[in-house]
Design a protein around this nucleic acid. Structure first.
Lengths: 206, 206
DNA sequence: CATGTTATCTAAGCGTTGTTCAGATGGATC
DNA sequence: GATCCATCTGAACAACGCTTAGATAACATG
């Protein structure tokens, strides 16, 4: 008779895929992206280093699953931000702030999300239909009214998305620290930058 | 007497630091960032795997050197773009297009540059004085005239830089392919997006 | 010129990683 | 109850970043 194991997991885990993704997110949050090795994830989940390969083709595919969860979470954050406002322009700014805030609050996760995208040279497919990208697009469409062309709409969405991503990756740079305190905090800083980007400038001009 | 070596390098290389950085750039261009290991760089330079440690504290410091070269090159590209125009607004767009074009032409190098920045949560120090960041700032300052505040100037520079970085990392996404051909090529696409960002909107409005 | 000092390089090795493979395990099906 | 098959383990491989001990040669000092 052996001593009681700390976690008497049966030989077959039951839902290892899910457990692995959760373990990965736990490692991301506590130790950062550099510590996210497949072996570490397996360790954290309490299985052998080879076990993950029965659920994911390779490390990249596990990261894809983690990234997917990230996009879903970002989705929800943007959805919430979109409802918290009535005015179109303010709503657009709120979306931008929510986007960057999500990235700043989950830096490791955001990094994985975009690393996966760049490896495939594409945003996740999910986004085109009902995802975060589409939410930005719809918000712009509503703000711009009927007169706007499909092309302008697409361009404006891309422009806003690029601005958000750029700011998400750079707003943490220490060179901007003094400016932030001068403006009264992180959020004020973000709003000010988005204001300067004038994402409706084209529509305002006519 | 031994056969003539293919490259009868003396025991002491002479300028190994430089050779290592060049070897790294060669690997980046031909095999991409994933293949850029310290051992591969040493192999490419024709030295043992331990040799680089006499010139760089660790792999990160070698990448820092590579990144520095990248920033210098980007510097030059922006300098050239700035002189190729007279009108302020066009000059600003040209800067943006040049920035993104550099990133698209040297994707692996650009990746290393920004990975190094994020590891330190800072743009390279060199940029603040006479570097690329400063060029953008000066261009905006010239365009905005005397009335603009120091804060607005800084915000506009950050906004432009974020937009450039975001577009640099996303313009390669295949989702935008059809839109690009529809607009008549990569450069037209970039100009259209920058136009939508209306980086002078704030100043135009007064 | 001989000598000692120092910078530079190599060889070997440690611990870790991603990945593969043969074999052990056990739930599901007949 | 025998069989099948997805799942998991243990052991192994090559490659990685990095360290250490020792070889080599340039250079300074006498």
């Amino acid at each position: 008779m052996t001593l009681a194991q700390p976690e008497a997991r049966p030989y077959h885990h039951g839902d290892l895929s899910r457990a692995l993704v959760e373990a990965a997110r736990r490692i991301l949050e506590t130790e950062g992206p550099a510590a996210l090795s497949l072996r570490a994830v397996a360790r954290e989940a309490g299985v052998s280093p080879a076990a993950p390969y029965h659920h994911f083709k390779d490390k990249g595919q596990l990261l894809d699953a983690v990234a997917h969860e990230g996009w879903v979470a970002l989705d929800a954050a943007l959805m919430k931000a979109r409802q918290d406002s009535d005015d179109d322009r303010r709503r657009m700014t709120n979306l931008g702030v929510a986007y960057v805030t999500f990235a700043r609050d989950n830096p490791a996760l955001y990094r994985v999300m975009y690393d996966c995208s760049r490896d495939k040279d594409a945003l996740p497919d999910q986004m085109k239909e009902e995802g975060a990208y589409c939410q930005v697009r719809n918000t712009i469409a509503h703000a711009a009214g009927d007169g706007v062309s499909e092309i302008d709409l697409e361009l404006a969405t891309i422009a806003a998305w690029c601005a958000g991503h750029g700011l998400a990756e750079m707003s943490g740079f220490k060179q901007f620290e003094s400016l932030k305190t001068l403006l009264g905090g992180e959020e004020a800083f973000l709003k000010a930058v988005f204001d300067h980007l004038g994402m409706f400038a084209k529509f305002d001009r006519g």
